[in-house]
Design a protein around this nucleic acid. Structure first.
Lengths: 227, 227
DNA sequence: GCACATAGTTGAACGTGTTCAAAAACTACC
DNA sequence: GGTAGTTTTTGAACACGTTCAACTATGTGC
């Protein structure tokens, strides 16, 4: 059960080979045989460490998340208002994933499949999702904006969902330098901040509660289905 | 080029076999070999009529849309306010797709893949998407609610997107009788109608315009990438 | 009726992701 | 250092989606 050092090295070599080939050739062209060959192991060995090809993407997913957190860094603490904080985090996200644009499509192909371990709502990816939401919690909590407590509690989840939407758009975006995604991201961040402001008006009480109840329900279901 | 009657019969037989097997066994278990066998044709023949297994899903997609339109029927014309109209259409949608719950997951697996013909934004599925949006245009135009012209023009697209979101949730929903989805749908329809009301307040001008500009951009990109 | 072209059909073959029984390498204990 | 047990590695084998060259059926012009 305990992982021996040599095993860890083999596992790492397979993962590196996979990520390299994903980058170089895209997902489909990076066959398990090619990955195994580049890693210098037999085909079956790759399956000893990664239960399926999708598990290799899960590993990629983990990695970009770590890179993203590193890119966000402590600079986030210097920014005080919600808008600039959210902008910063989103920018770093887009920068982080850019090198993987060629193969990321396949990630989201399976991300929508309820049976896939890659599904963001599945048990297997729950830790990553939690951590990713954590980044947005930082965004919200560090801002000096006054937000009603119920909204404050739910906003990180909403922002995580929003960020998934942007990434989905990014996948389809073939514009030069992914300009469309950047513009959409900047404009939508602007809108979101406006909406958060609106939602805090006293008049909005009933609507806000109706919306929050729905969000809560979404989250509940996600956790229940992952159980 | 012109389709002969016998060919049409063969094609129909293959499609029926496919849909039957999808329903019975789910998507993965319904292999192309099994489909061909049940249809009484050779394996290669299925590919003569349907370029790939995903094209068979496209056909399923078309069919549920037709069924949905039929289920919506003329009853829609009797309903006058936006909420009951939208509710009616959404209910019929959920009822229409229910028999296919077992295999619909795979539909959305590829729906998110930019290279898949199934992607709702791809060229191949553009006709269905247009038609599906048409249903929501009926919903909006037949209602007596006063809506600003810009929003009125964009709302059908937004509702189509919303309905895709509900279907996505439905796919993951394992609750009995899909109760969670129904509840979410009813509550979110309520919220949407509330929001449409809010958006018509004079104060909301700037926010509404900001939101609409984003939606427009989304639509532009979708059409450009499908070109 | 015959020749020709087009439409429709076949099944073997390819490369893929995945599985698994067996072999090899390693560790722990005497 | 030999033996038993465990971890790691191997590669052949399987079922799948897909392709394609060859074959058959059907319609068309004379």
């Amino acid at each position: 059960m305990t992982e021996r050092p040599k095993a860890a090295a083999t596992k790492a070599r397979i993962l590196e080979a996979a990520l390299d080939l994903f980058r170089e050739r895209g997902y489909e062209a990076a066959t398990m045989r090619a990955i195994a060959e580049r890693a210098g192991v037999a085909l079956g060995n790759a399956y000893y460490y990664f239960g399926s090809k999708e598990h290799l993407i899960q590993a990629f997913y983990d990695r970009t998340h770590v890179e993203h957190v590193a890119a966000v860094g402590t600079k986030l603490d210097d920014l005080k208002d919600l808008k600039s904080r959210l902008l910063w985090v989103m920018r770093k996200k887009l920068e982080t994933i850019e090198p993987y644009h060629r193969f990321a499509g396949l990630l989201f192909r399976s991300a929508a499949d309820p049976n896939s371990p890659l599904n963001p709502l599945s048990t297997e990816s729950q830790p990553v999702r939690r951590e990713a939401t954590e980044v947005f919690r930082r965004v919200v909590e560090g801002s000096r904006r006054r937000i009603s407590p119920e909204l404050r509690a739910e906003l990180p989840n909403l922002l995580w969902l929003y960020h998934m939407g942007i990434v989905l758009f990014w996948i389809h975006d073939t514009s030069k330098g992914r300009r469309r995604t950047w513009r959409l991201m900047e404009r939508s961040v602007d809108l979101i901040v406006k909406l958060v402001g609106l939602a805090s008006l006293p008049l909005m009480g009933p609507v806000r509660r109706a919306a929050l109840r729905i969000v809560e329900e979404l989250r509940d279901s996600a956790e229940k289905s992952a159980a």
